[in-house]
C-alpha cells in the first residue's frame, strides 16, 4: 500500500436502534491532520457515527480502526471488548459534546486535570501545568478556578475543548459543539477550533456552521439517511453539489445566510 495508514478507518459500519437502521454502511478513511466535517440534516446519522467512534454507541456490523487498532470489538469476531480496554481506547479519542457536559462540582481546572491524573496517571503538579497551558490557549487563564455555573456557555464549551485536547488524543470528535450556544458566543468557540485545526490536530466535526466548515475543513462528508451521499473538498462540494439532496440541503443554509 502506497497510501499511509489512515488514522481513522471505518469499514461498512451499521447501527440499528431497534428495527431502525440509522447507519447503513459507513466507509471512510481520515488521514492524520485532516479536519473532516460531517454535514447533513438531523436524523442522517452523523452524530450517531461520531458516538460509535468513541464507543458511546454500540454498532452491529463493520469495523472502526484508529491508528490501525480495531476499536470496541475483538479482532475477528464482533464481540465487545472489556471495560478497561474500552476505557483505554476512549482515552485516546477526545470528544466534545453539544451540551458541554462539564462536571459541575469541579472548577474549570479540575475538569481538565481529572483525566490527566486519573486516566493518564500524571502527577498533580504536572496535570495542573498542562491544564493551565490549555486553559490559557482557549483564552480562559483567568477563569480556571471558576465553576461551570459561573461561566457562559461559550466559556464552558472552551473548557470542554481544553478537557478533551489536553489529553493529547489522536483525534478529537466535535458533536455540534456550537448548537447549544447563543449566536454571539458561537464565534469564540469556532476560533478555538480553527486554532486547533491549524496546529495539525485530526478533527471530525459534525456541524451546521457552514461558513466554518467551508473555511476550516479539509474535506466534507454529506450524510443522508445513514449513508455517505457525497464527499469532497469543501470548495468543490459547496460550489458544485452533485446530488439534488445536497443542493437542497445547502440551499436551506444559503437562504439563511446574509
Amino acid at each position: 500500500m502506497a497510501e499511509p495508514q489512515p488514522l481513522l478507518r471505518a469499514i461498512d459500519v451499521h447501527k440499528k436502534f431497534g428495527d431502525v437502521e440509522v447507519l447503513k454502511g459507513i466507509d471512510i478513511d481520515v488521514q492524520k491532520g485532516e479536519v473532516l466535517a460531517i454535514i447533513g440534516s438531523s436524523g442522517s446519522g452523523k452524530t450517531t457515527f461520531l458516538r460509535c467512534i468513541n464507543l458511546l454507541e454500540e454498532f452491529h456490523q463493520g469495523e472502526i480502526q484508529v491508528d490501525g487498532e480495531r476499536i470496541g470489538y475483538t479482532a475477528g469476531s464482533h464481540k465487545r471488548l472489556g471495560e478497561a480496554a474500552i476505557a483505554a481506547q476512549r482515552a485516546r479519542i477526545g470528544m466534545v459534546f453539544q451540551s458541554f457536559n462539564l462536571f459541575p462540582h469541579m472548577t474549570a481546572e479540575q475538569n481538565v486535570t481529572l483525566g490527566l491524573i486519573k486516566v493518564q496517571g500524571r502527577r498533580k503538579e504536572e496535570a495542573v501545568e498542562i491544564a493551565r497551558r490549555w486553559l490559557d490557549r482557549v483564552g480562559l487563564a483567568e477563569r480556571r478556578d471558576h465553576y461551570p455555573y459561573q461561566l457562559s456557555g461559550g466559556q464552558q464549551q472552551r473548557v470542554a475543548i481544553a478537557r478533551a485536547v489536553s489529553m493529547e488524543p489522536k483525534l478529537v470528535l466535535f458533536d455540534e459543539v456550537t448548537s447549544a450556544l447563543d449566536p454571539e458566543l458561537v464565534s469564540e468557540v469556532l476560533a478555538v477550533m480553527q486554532d486547533l485545526a491549524k496546529s495539525g490536530m485530526t478533527m471530525l466535526v459534525v456541524s451546521h456552521e457552514m461558513s466554518f466548515v467551508r473555511a476550516v475543513a479539509t474535506r466534507v462528508v454529506f450524510m443522508e439517511a445513514g449513508r455517505i451521499a457525497e464527499e469532497g473538498p469543501p470548495a468543490e462540494l459547496f460550489a458544485r453539489p452533485k446530488s439534488e439532496r445536497l443542493a437542497a440541503f445547502l440551499g436551506r443554509f444559503h437562504g439563511l445566510a446574509h
Binding site: N54, L55, L56, E83, A84, A87, A88, R90, A91, R92, I93, G94, M95, F97, S99, F100, N101, L102, F103, L114, G115, K118, V119, A160, R163, A164, M167
Partner: peptide, 16 residues
Amino acid sequence: IPAGQTEAAKAIGLRF
C-alpha cells in the same frame, strides 16, 4: 444526573 455526565466521564477514559 444528566446522561451527559456519564458520557463525558466515559469520553475521557474513566472506568465505571
